[in-house]
C-alpha cells in the first residue's frame, strides 16, 4: 500500500508537472511558516532562557499553563473570545452575503464601483488608526460626540467607563472593517453561477427575490460552508489588534472586552515569560483544532458535499 502510495505520487508528479509547480510555492509557504514553527511549540513546556534557547531551556511540564487558571479569568476571557467570534461570524456573513447580492444586482457601473470601493477601503485602515478615531469620537471630555451633545444641552455619554456599549461597538467596527473585503469572496461565487440559470428562471416567470432565494443562495452555499469552517477554526483566537487598540488598559471594561490574547499580553508584559505565552497559544490552538474537527464532522453529516473532507 505504502509502495503504491508513493508510486502514485511519482506518477502524479510526472504527469502534472505544471500543476505541481504551481502548488509548490504554497507548499513551501506552509512548510516554512506553518509546519516548521510547530517545533517551537515545545517552548510551552519549558522555562525559556535566552542563552540556552528553545531546546536547551529546562523542562517545566504544564507549569506554564498554571497562571492562566489561578488568575480566575480563564473562563471569562475564553467565553468572551468565543462569543465575540460567534457574533462576528454571524453578522459579517449575513452582511457580506447581502452586500454581495446587492452588488451583483446593481447594473449602474459607476455606482457599483464607488460603492464597492467605499466598502473595501476600511480594510486598509489599521486598528491603531481606528482606535485613535474611536477615542476622538467617544472621549468623555474631548470627544466629538460629547461635544455635540454638550452643545445641544444633552447629557454626555461615558463610553470608556461603561462596559455595555462595547459589544455593540466591536461588532459594528469589525463589520465596518471586514464586510467590504468579505463580500468580494461571495461576489466571486455569485459571478461563477451560470447566467443561463438566471435566464431560464426569468423565462419561467421568477421574480428577483425568487432568483436570489432559489438560485443565488444555493449557489454560494459551498463558499459559505468553507468560510464558516475556516472562521470556526479561529474561534478561540481574539483579534488582538482590535481589542487592544480600542480598549487599551482600561480595567473597567475588561469584563466585557477582555479576550484571551489581550489578557495574556497584559499579564506577561513585565515577566517576559515566552513559555507562558506559548502555552496559552497552544491552549488556543488545541481548542481551535478540536472545534474545527467537530464542526466539519457535523457539516459532513448534514451536508457531506460541503464538508472539507
Amino acid at each position: 500500500m505504502k509502495f503504491k502510495l508513493f508510486g502514485n505520487l511519482a506518477y502524479d508528479l510526472r504527469r502534472n508537472k505544471a500543476l505541481m509547480a504551481m502548488v509548490l510555492p504554497v507548499v513551501a509557504y506552509l512548510l516554512v511558516f506553518a509546519y516548521a514553527p510547530m517545533v517551537g511549540a515545545v517552548i510551552a513546556f519549558k522555562s525559556y532562557n535566552f542563552t540556552s534557547g528553545i531546546f536547551g531551556s529546562p523542562w517545566v511540564g504544564f507549569n506554564n499553563f498554571r497562571f492562566f487558571f489561578i488568575s480566575g479569568k480563564a473562563w471569562q476571557v475564553t467565553k468572551n473570545t468565543v462569543l465575540y467570534n460567534v457574533a462576528f461570524i454571524a453578522t459579517q456573513n449575513v452582511l457580506e452575503i447581502t452586500v454581495a447580492i446587492f452588488l451583483s444586482e446593481i447594473s449602474h457601473r459607476y455606482f457599483k464601483k464607488i460603492t464597492q470601493g467605499a466598502m473595501f477601503l476600511p480594510n486598509f485602515i489599521s486598528w491603531v488608526v481606528v482606535g485613535a478615531i474611536a477615542y476622538n469620537l467617544f472621549s468623555y471630555d474631548f470627544g466629538f460626540i460629547n461635544n455635540v451633545l454638550t452643545s445641544l444641552n444633552a447629557p454626555k455619554i461615558d463610553v470608556y467607563t461603561t462596559a455595555k456599549y462595547w459589544p455593540h461597538i466591536f461588532v459594528f467596527l469589525s463589520a465596518w472593517k471586514h464586510v467590504g473585503y468579505g463580500s468580494i469572496v461571495y461576489l466571486a461565487a455569485i459571478t461563477g453561477i451560470s447566467s443561463e440559470i438566471y435566464e431560464s428562471a426569468a423565462l419561467d416567470g421568477a421574480n428577483e427575490w425568487q432568483k436570489i432565494r432559489y438560485i443565488t443562495l444555493p449557489g454560494i452555499q459551498s463558499t459559505f460552508f468553507v468560510l464558516l469552517i475556516l472562521a470556526i477554526g479561529n474561534i478561540f483566537r481574539g483579534n488582538f489588534d482590535m481589542f487592544y487598540q480600542l480598549v487599551g488598559n482600561n480595567g473597567l471594561l475588561y469584563n466585557a472586552t477582555d479576550v484571551i490574547d489581550t489578557y495574556v499580553f497584559r499579564s506577561l508584559l513585565t515577566t517576559y515569560e515566552f513559555g507562558m505565552s506559548s502555552a496559552i497559544g497552544l491552549y488556543q490552538s488545541v481548542l481551535c483544532f478540536v472545534t474545527l474537527i467537530i464542526t466539519n464532522a457535523i457539516i459532513h453529516r448534514v451536508s457531506p458535499e460541503n464538508a472539507l473532507y
Binding site: 497562571f67 489561578i70 488568575s71 479569568k73 480595567g251 475588561y254 477582555d258 497584559r266 515577566t271 507562558m276
Partner: peptide, 20 residues
C-alpha cells in the same frame, strides 16, 4: 524566577482592579 505564575496572575489582577 520560581514565582512566574503568581507574578503573571497578579499583573492581570492589578491591571483590572488596581488601576481603576
Amino acid at each position: 524566577s520560581n514565582y512566574q505564575n503568581e507574578m503573571a496572575a497578579l499583573q492581570g489582577v492589578y491591571d483590572e482592579f488596581g488601576k481603576p
